[in-house]
């Protein structure tokens, strides 16, 4: 029996059209194909500007492709996230598809602990259990306890990044997109994140990642995928 891919990118093309700059068209990639199986961590390779982040954002439903589709395995069946209605995209993001970016979108006044438990509450986990899981994770990420009740807007870059990681890993999403999650972390914290990633992979999560740090990349990648092979003709 063949297993179904967690992510299947099908003949995906992306052209940005800048209407207010004389309708300039910028082709990013075309006819891109990629399959990611559960337990796989595919690391996107290629130099800066080749479209790695654009591909990630298109898989997340954040960018709209010019043609092609992105099928995400949601509740056991593949759904084309690029054509799904907004409520279904939000549902997929709530239960199936997580995204760890380099930046935390800070919401004024919401405490660190509340931010981290929010994805669990949205998925119907009881408050007590959610708190326990959040505390365990924040401790593992070595975020000082004094910070837990504060909103992260005043935290350092590395601290915000760890809150962001806690928020994304707590949910144990079956499909995770990692956009340089270790960018502003020191070596010890990077090692912790690598452990988290590998634990999630062992549980069968499928991941697509961008890592500029070669040590992290080598520690988590099951294979590399070169985006520049699909570069759109200029």
């Amino acid at each position: 029996m063949t297993q179904e891919a967690a992510i299947r990118v099908d003949d995906l093309s992306k052209i940005f059209t800048l209407h207010n700059q004389g309708a300039t068209s910028i082709g990013v990639f075309e006819a891109l194909k990629l399959e990611v199986m559960p337990g796989e961590c595919v690391v996107l390779a290629g130099e800066s500007g080749v479209g790695k982040s654009t591909l990630m954002r298109t898989i997340y439903g954040n960018y709209l492709p010019s043609s092609g589709g992105v099928f995400v395995l949601h509740d056991g069946s593949p759904v084309d996230i690029t054509k799904a209605p907004p409520h279904q995209v939000l549902e997929i993001r709530r239960r199936t598809l997580g995204y760890v970016s380099q930046f935390l979108r800070v919401i004024p006044r919401v405490s660190t602990l509340d931010l981290v438990i929010e994805p669990l509450l949205e998925n119907g986990v009881e408050l007590e259990e959610a708190r326990e899981r959040a505390i365990t994770l924040l401790q593992a990420l070595r975020l000082p306890e004094a910070h837990w009740d504060l909103p992260p807007s005043t935290f350092s870059g590395g601290e915000q990044q760890r809150v962001n990681i806690a928020r994304s890993f707590i949910r144990e999403y079956p499909v995770l997109l990692l956009d340089e999650p270790t960018a502003s972390l020191d070596a010890a914290n990077r090692a912790i994140v690598v452990e988290l990633i590998n634990a999630a992979l062992a549980k069968g999560a499928a991941m697509v990642g961008i890592f500029h740090d070669h040590d992290v990349r080598d520690a988590v990648a099951t294979r590399l995928f070169n985006v520049s092979e699909y570069k759109a003709a200029a």
Binding site: T17, H19, R57, G61, N62, Y63, L64, P86, V89, L90
Partner: peptide, 12 residues
């Protein structure tokens, strides 16, 4: 469309 998509990748 989806709010973040319209704001991050506006088409019109």
């Amino acid at each position: 469309g989806l709010a973040d998509q319209v704001l991050d990748d506006p088409q019109h």
